[in-house]
């Protein structure tokens, strides 16, 4: 006697696809201060330091670095009589919690590096401190300078 096991009929088909993930980064800068005013002699003597002047948050799917640079070699005079020769180096920036400042110039300098992850990843959100010390060499007035933050892949 011949017996057959139960055979399970089966039919299959396949489809293929792709997923592409590019290097993606996002940068948020929250300015925590407004206009910085020099009101008395001590401000000119030793300059003004603003702790936690801005909060920077990075989200990136690759390891990253932030460079900073001044957008111009000199502060822009915004009022009548203000000097046109106050250099960008009057402004210094550092990451809060570090000791040394970066003296601003039009050359890019690295402010911080970090690992991939969102803004909740350790090291991807941090504050910056400012130091502005023009001394007595420039006229009273209003001044402005742009600072460029550049986020890129390590």
């Amino acid at each position: 006697m011949i017996t057959f096991g139960k055979v399970r009929a089966q039919s299959s088909t396949t489809v293929s696809g792709t997923i592409d993930i590019s290097a993606c980064m996002g940068l948020t800068i929250t300015n925590l201060t407004g206009v910085v005013s020099f009101n008395d002699a001590s401000d000119y003597m030793s300059g003004i330091t603003i702790t936690n002047a801005a909060t920077i948050a990075v989200k990136s799917n690759v390891n990253w670095l932030i460079d900073i640079s001044a957008q111009s070699a000199y502060f822009q005079a915004m009022s009548s009589g203000a000097s046109a020769n106050m250099p960008a180096s009057v402004l210094q920036i550092r990451r809060n919690g570090t000791s040394s400042y970066i003296t601003m110039s039009t050359n890019s300098q690295t402010l911080k590096t970090g690992n991939k992850g969102d803004e909740n990843t350790t090291g991807n959100s941090f504050n910056t401190d400012l130091s502005i010390n023009p001394g007595f060499g420039y006229n009273a007035g209003s001044y402005n300078i742009g600072v460029l933050f550049t986020l890129s892949q390590q």
Partner: peptide, 21 residues
């Protein structure tokens, strides 16, 4: 994928199967 998934190119193939007892 969030910010932790490796960047690059992925390929996949899916299989659909019909069976009968």
């Amino acid at each position: 994928p969030g910010y932790s998934t490796a960047t690059g190119h992925y390929n996949f193939t899916l299989m659909f199967t019909m069976t009968s007892p």
